[in-house]
Amino acid sequence: MSVTSEYSDGKPAVSFCLLDGGGRVVAERDSGTRYYPASTIKLAVLLAVMRDIDAGLRSLDDTVVVRRTFTSAQPGADPFTLETDDADERFPDDGTAMQLRDVLDRMIYRSSNEATNLALELIGLDAVNDTITDAGLVSTKMKRLIGDIAARDGGLTNQTTASDLARLMRVIVSGMLTSAGSTRFMITALEHQDFAYIAPGLPAGVRWGSKSGWVEGITHDVAFIGTPGTAATLYLAVCTRGYDERQGIEAVGAMAAGITTPLLIAAPEDFDA
């Protein structure tokens, strides 16, 4: 049975985009189809913050005070608090002081919505959308914070495509918009990923880092495969809609295995961890 939700029209869909190290399309299927991005949009937030750091506007050592209530993007709406299903049960208590580096790390490897919204309120949505433009993405946008139901119901949404996600991952990993230090920080966060859907479809020993996303009826993952930033690195995004969580995860992993296995077998030395 297909899954319908606020983010899925219930029509099953699978899209993917595979890029080589030079950004050329190796393989794709419906890579321009637009999806709700779920947590994959956090990559754009990460990149935007790191650009601010490189510009000297803030530092990874800056202190951020934890909270779970945020300003809605919907005009006239009350501040919102993340619902239980959206919350990171391991996130520190409200009022706790965290370094920005830890906020960003948790946003990626734990996919923490609290961390994401703290980062977003620090830099603003405009900075994220400017970064999306500078990264050369054509269909991605971020109009609201994570868990902002009033804004969602008011028509303010986030969106992306498999093509944009693969290109965004390449921009991050290759350091096209960031310093060497900021690029290393982002790669390390990606390699610590707790929720990996592409990686189980890869042969053992292959180096990878990723950012997945899931909400009801939506399952995505985007990964780099191989030594970061080299000519041999692959960038793969797989997006699905209309499946439950288990089905979506299985679909992403199976698609990743089918797409990448012939390439990894042909030149395994290019992808060793």
Rank of each mutant, 00 (worst) to 15 (best):
R152V: 11
S182I: 08
G201C: 05
I198D: 04
G201V: 02
A166R: 11
A199S: 06
T160Q: 08
A196R: 14
Y197E: 09
M186T: 09
L190G: 00
F195S: 06
R167A: 03
R170Q: 11
A162W: 01
A199G: 02
L145C: 09
F185D: 00
R170L: 09
G205T: 11
G201E: 03
T157I: 14
G147W: 01
R184P: 01
S163W: 14
Q159P: 07
A151S: 07
V171S: 14
K143V: 15
G181P: 10
A204M: 02
T157V: 14
M176A: 13
M186A: 12
A204T: 07
A162I: 03
T157G: 05
A196G: 06
D164S: 07
M169D: 13
S179A: 04
R170E: 12
G205C: 10
V173P: 09
G181Q: 08
G205P: 11
D164A: 07
A189P: 13
G201Q: 05
L177F: 02
A204F: 03
G154F: 12
K143I: 15
Q159M: 13
S179N: 03
G181L: 01
Q159R: 14
L156K: 15
V173K: 03
I149H: 01
S179T: 10
G201H: 04
G181S: 06
H192W: 07
L202H: 01
G175L: 11
Y197K: 13
G154D: 12
V173A: 05
L156E: 12
S182H: 05
L168N: 04
R184E: 05
S179Y: 05
S163Q: 14
R170W: 10
Q193F: 02
R167M: 06
F185A: 00
G155P: 15
A166Y: 10
G154W: 13
A162C: 06
L202R: 01
A166N: 07
L145N: 13
A204S: 07
G154A: 10
P200N: 00
G205Q: 12
T178A: 06
R170T: 11
A150D: 11
T188N: 10
G155D: 11
L190H: 04
R167T: 10
I172L: 08
L165E: 13
A196Q: 12
R184W: 00
T178Q: 04
D148P: 02
A204P: 00
G181A: 04
A189D: 10
T160H: 07
E191T: 08
L177E: 05
T188F: 07
A150I: 08
N158A: 00
L156T: 14
G181V: 09
L190V: 10
A180V: 10
